[in-house]
């Protein structure tokens, strides 16, 4: 190893996340043992790092910062329409039961249609489900080949560390299914195999998503009815 290379490598030595492999470290060490010039440079580098690093990292964090951040984030989420609708719906429930209503934010006009949608009294459609997921910042479309009149919930859940959309379909005792929408960019499902009684896997090549369908009962009960001719 030449002195020139050592100069380069020194910056990579002694790092918390190992930057050099064992042979590189060995030959660096060997060189430093035999070359006083480089050994001195290495020592000066380390002295500076030891003097500066701990001081630079030692910054006192305000005790109330975390609470402030969480509060602000919650306030910003409060600006999301569906959450406002839920809050308004709760306020109406209190109002009609004769309770006292305190509102700490300006009142939001409630539309009955929106309200029914969000308390799942209106029927979902593939389109409204798609829009809901899009509003939550999720990619991936709700699957075809389901009867959307049977869609009970649309959820955004954390699955293996990532946010994904989940649709729950149900037809009485006949069948209940949860569909997870997994974009290919984020999930690999190659190792999964279908189970004829509980797990169906569908790949959508156009939208580049996989639908994992976990179900109980007869999945055919959730399929759209053919149009009456």
């Amino acid at each position: 190893m030449e002195c020139q290379d050592v100069k380069q490598l020194l910056a990579f030595a002694d790092r918390k996340c190992a930057e050099l492999d064992a042979p590189e470290l060995d030959s660096l060490k060997q060189h430093l043992e035999t070359c006083p010039t480089c050994a001195e440079a290495a020592q000066a580098e380390r002295a500076l790092d030891d003097a500066v690093g701990p001081v630079l990292r030692d910054v006192a964090v305000p005790a109330d910062l975390k609470a402030k951040v969480l509060k602000r984030l919650a306030a910003e989420r409060g600006a999301v329409p569906w959450k406002r609708v839920l809050a308004a719906a709760a306020a109406i429930l209190i109002a009609v039961t004769g309770g006292v209503v305190w509102l700490n934010s300006p009142a939001t006009a409630v539309s009955e249609d929106e309200l029914r949608q969000f308390v799942s009294m209106n029927q979902w459609t593939q389109e409204t489900a798609k829009q809901f997921l899009k509003d939550q910042g999720l990619v991936g479309l709700p699957p075809d080949n389901f009867e959307y009149g049977l869609l009970q919930h649309v959820d955004v859940i954390r699955f293996q560390g990532r946010l994904v959309g989940k649709l729950t379909f149900s037809r009485g005792d006949e069948c209940t299914a949860s569909v997870l929408i997994l974009p290919w960019k984020q999930f690999s499902t190659k190792h999964l195999t279908e189970n004829p009684t509980s797990l169906s896997i569908r790949h959508d090549d156009v939208n580049e998503v996989t639908y994992l369908i976990l179900f109980r009962g007869n999945l055919d009960a959730l399929r759209p009815k053919p149009p009456i001719t």
Binding site: R77, F118, R158
Partner: peptide, 16 residues
């Protein structure tokens, strides 16, 4: 009902 509001938002874990 919608499930999104029930669990702790993912961003909160990132804050912590």
């Amino acid at each position: 009902m919608l499930g999104f509001g029930r669990s702790k938002p993912a961003i909160d874990s990132l804050v912590e």
